[in-house]
Design a protein around this nucleic acid. Structure first.
Lengths: 214, 214
DNA sequence: TAGATTGTTAATCGATTAACAATC
DNA sequence: TAGATTGTTAATCGATTAACAATC
């Protein structure tokens, strides 16, 4: 296998390749060249070839890439050729949104359990999944061999939830709390800092106003 | 003003500086040096000084930076020293989560209106804001001088919603639909591709498994 | 075979880090 | 003044782009 370190820049582009290849598939398009894909996706043809060749030789000289095959390969590269046992901690609007989304699209992230600290919510069901007490999180994660924990609690509780998930043995954490969590290097951590994203938008609005005159 | 183009890398770090400076403020810490901040935030001291000097001279040789002042300056740089009239389109779980969040934290993004295409939801209220028909979006945005539109609809409707927002004259769009929207260059666009983020997590889990042995 | 397009090496560009003079 | 730390230039590093030989 490729054990050399893949740069973060490439990791961020991979899901985007996947997205466009999925789109091409639905259009019934069978082959595509790096320059055609460049036109569509907005990366240079050179970069596309470089990126893909990080993982293998998927094309054919003089022809291009088979869309179906490349889509399948990128799914495999991304680790989307398997299922992940997932729990969601914090069943507010955001936790529910995530739960609904993964449930509805059946995308390989199976929500096995929901957790919350609020007694009013514990015992309720969302999409047939019961809400359990967060006090039992670590035990549940260990017993059920959970792969991924999705943290949708507030900033104050986020690190202790992460600690429970790590202690229970998760492989990855998808964090929505506005804090930079500490986890061991062997645990994958992906944080979505929504307020950071909104603040970046604010900055860009200001920049455009200056550029184009307010 | 600084009209030179600020790199995307810096834009992404700015909200993070803000976050840590806010934290320092709550701790009552008055001054900080670039090396202390480096320890805390994880960027090199050199990078911190470079980043800040893109926007001005906020420190004092031999001393460091005043936390209160630097926090205020970064807020100003980010354009957070004003309010933004905001609308949310698509009042599902995610739209409600965004609405609640901005309502609860009173962070300068005032949700003036909610929009949806579903007649069952139109007319309902969330946090005292009424849900209107998306057919009236463009007119409302124009009449009310809305700054920002938050797109929480599905992929299929997202581009037409974006078109209405642009036609109505928004300054920025915060997009949560899994599609790369086309907007004029003068409109700021920030997309949060949740599924891309989840797929990146999947990739990292796989990489760590290979690195540490499965 | 000729044309097209990949895979891959080399060149360029931009971002990060190091170094240090300026200065509080 | 001496010590500390910034602001800023120079060096390094890594990522992107260009070029082209390989080859289908």
């Amino acid at each position: 296998m490729h054990h050399h370190k893949v740069s973060n820049a490439i990791i961020r582009r991979l899901p985007r390749y996947r997205r466009y290849l999925g789109y091409l598939q639905t259009k019934g398009i069978k082959k595509i060249s790096s320059s055609e894909l460049s036109e569509l996706i907005g990366y240079t043809a050179s970069q596309i070839r470089q990126d893909l060749n990080t993982f293998g030789e998927f094309g054919q000289q003089g022809y291009g890439y088979e869309v179906d095959n490349l889509y399948k390969e990128i799914n495999r590269i991304l680790g989307l050729d398997r299922e992940y046992k997932t729990v969601v901690i914090g069943v507010g609007n955001l936790g529910q949104a995530i739960t609904n989304y993964t449930y509805y699209y059946k995308i390989g992230f199976n929500i096995m359990g929901l957790f919350d600290a609020n007694p009013d919510i514990i015992g309720k069901k969302f999409n047939d999944v019961e809400v359990m007490d967060v006090a039992n999180l670590e035990e549940y994660v260990r017993n059920e061999n959970i792969d991924i924990g999705v943290i949708c609690v507030n900033r104050e509780s986020a690190q202790s939830v992460a600690d429970s998930l790590v202690a229970g043995g998760v492989k990855g954490i998808w964090n929505f709390a506005p804090i930079d969590l500490e986890v061991p290097d062997k645990v994958a951590l992906e944080s979505v800092h929504l307020s950071d994203s909104l603040h970046a938008l604010s900055f860009m609005i200001k920049s455009k106003a200056e550029e184009y005159g307010e």
